[in-house]
Amino acid sequence: MATGTTLSAAISLGAPLGRLAILSAILIVLPLSFPNPFFFDVAVKVGLSAIVCVGLNLLSGYAGQISLGHAGFFALGAYGTALLSIKLGVHGLIAAPVIATVVGLLAHVIARPILKLKGHYLAMATLGLGIIISIVLNREIWLTGGPDGLSVPAMRLGEFKLRAIEFWYWIVAAFLIVAVWLAENLVNSPAGRSLRALHSSEIAAATAGVDVPRAKALVFAFSAVLASIAGAFFVFAERFITPADAGFLRSVEFLTMIVFGGLGSTYGALVGAAILTALPQLVAAFAEYKHVAIGIVLIATMIFMPRGIVPTLADLFGRRVGR
């Protein structure tokens, strides 16, 4: 728990760039403690969840628009990139941004009608969207391989085959830092303040001149782009994807990570993603009791720390400093 306190100290006291430096330092030092490639693999999965969560937290944490369908965008990014390179021979480095752009545009188009909905209606609509995507991925076997999943050959860069998980760790870590930087910039900008404003009162935000539908559509699209890019990296690093990665439960996991870490806290999203992704992987011994354990952890955390881990700890620490 010692690292936890240091971390929250840094979070509550540091300036945005200071926090970013600490995050970078952690990501650089962390691999020194990895005994084998399995740990790199877990770390890559953590990093990819974190990228999705940083975007989702902008949408749900800051702007207050709940999504239970973001795994769908992750899957679109993953399958889109994979299929573009397998079927059309497009290089992954081109396929990933092309697909991310397409996913972003798509999300922007559907955002307007969907984000008119509020609360549970919005949850239902995003949930439906995610499920429809996962059902299509399951059914269109000729294209996606169906429930068995899709294997993707390793990315090639000239002579090199980029298969080493260690390599992808560094790529994912770098992109995570970029994502956090972008998100923190946004939060502290006029556009970000508008998003946080419409969270509690859309009428007052509109009165203040915020184009509410536009603001929501943009943040929805941006979060979809981040999810799509994370999906593409997943395909590069893991070279295998199944429709389960697009399913409802995956979307729930993403939402859970940001609530667990602390809604409306970018670093909370990171902590939530890290704990909830790494724990089930590392305590494989528990496999049989996995669901029981996850259920209890979810309920208990939400009851005892309804604001999430990072804000709760930051408060505790902040108060101690204040005294």
Partner: peptide, 9 residues
């Protein structure tokens, strides 16, 4: 109000 400019501060 630009969202894109905001991302890059």
């Amino acid at each position: 109000p630009s969202f894109l400019k905001a991302l890059f501060n």
